[in-house]
Design a protein around this nucleic acid. Sequence first.
DNA 1: TCTAAATATTTTAAGCATAAAATGTAGTTT
DNA 2: AAACTACATTTTATGCTTAAAATATTTAGA
Lengths: 162, 162
Amino acid sequence: MVSPKPDLETRLAEDHHQAIKLWLRLLTCTNLITAEIRTRLRENFETTLPRFDLLAQLERHPEGLRMGELSQRMMVTTGNVTGITDQLEAEGLVRREVDPQDRRSITVKLTPKGQQVFAEMARIHEGWVIELFSGLSAAEKDSLYALLGKLKKHLNHKEARP
Amino acid sequence: MVSPKPDLETRLAEDHHQAIKLWLRLLTCTNLITAEIRTRLRENFETTLPRFDLLAQLERHPEGLRMGELSQRMMVTTGNVTGITDQLEAEGLVRREVDPQDRRSITVKLTPKGQQVFAEMARIHEGWVIELFSGLSAAEKDSLYALLGKLKKHLNHKEARP
DNA sequence: TCTAAATATTTTAAGCATAAAATGTAGTTT
DNA sequence: AAACTACATTTTATGCTTAAAATATTTAGA
């Protein structure tokens, strides 16, 4: 019998707790998908996943989003958003605007070029994600979605505790 | 009604594909857990998640693991393993040994101090993971585990295709 | 009006992460 | 024996990521 490809779950033994096994499997699946999408974005569009994610946040916001809002939605620090925005601005895909009402705040918007480039990437990216999850039936996807929703609710509730 | 905390799922609308919604929820849950464990490891043990992961790989291997094997199990590049190993070696938690039969190969082993330090961290870490997943019943954890297993199998099968 | 506190973003230092090239070693073929 | 190919790890260049400090601006209170 051929050994499966090693990954984060390989080190587990029977005496490891169920929660540990679940955590490592969750992490393994996320890593596999992330790695695949990163490779395809680089090969097809010469871009990166964080840059794609930032553009995706702006897609439905022609009025732009503030750095702090981008930071929260992307689940990264504002310092990181600064760097990713620098790169996208250099590529002409986004532009920064200072809020005249509050000069501390900066709003980031897609440029016309950014809208066009992102629309094309988003179309192809959606096909990739559909393909990556196609091993699950619609009912299984719904179950997974619901279970992760419950997990997420618990994680967020916990953090809210003082 | 209070708005939920923004995250990767916030940008989604009804017309986004189910697979995209599932992918962003998976990513959101992974990010929430990763962020929480990273913070606790730093505050309690002054270490990082990648370093913890590397030590965890070595726990059940007193004979050590090779750099390439560590790279596969941790799902990162061998270059990255080099850097993380450097740090752990500097802390006295692991040591490198050249394979006398094949001087290209290096085996990484836990030092006695590394075994002791890791045992303590692993004990506490397990409690954290149990707590983080405690919002799900045992049956729900089993379901999530099985669904992710099916997803993983599909992801690995796809990569094997030429 | 002035000062202190709070807010928003950038900068700094450090760690992780990748892809690709470089280096050293081993195996195979001529 | 020499040349070529393959393997294992490190190095290089680049990008992402964090925590904390710095900077500029706004708000609140005395």
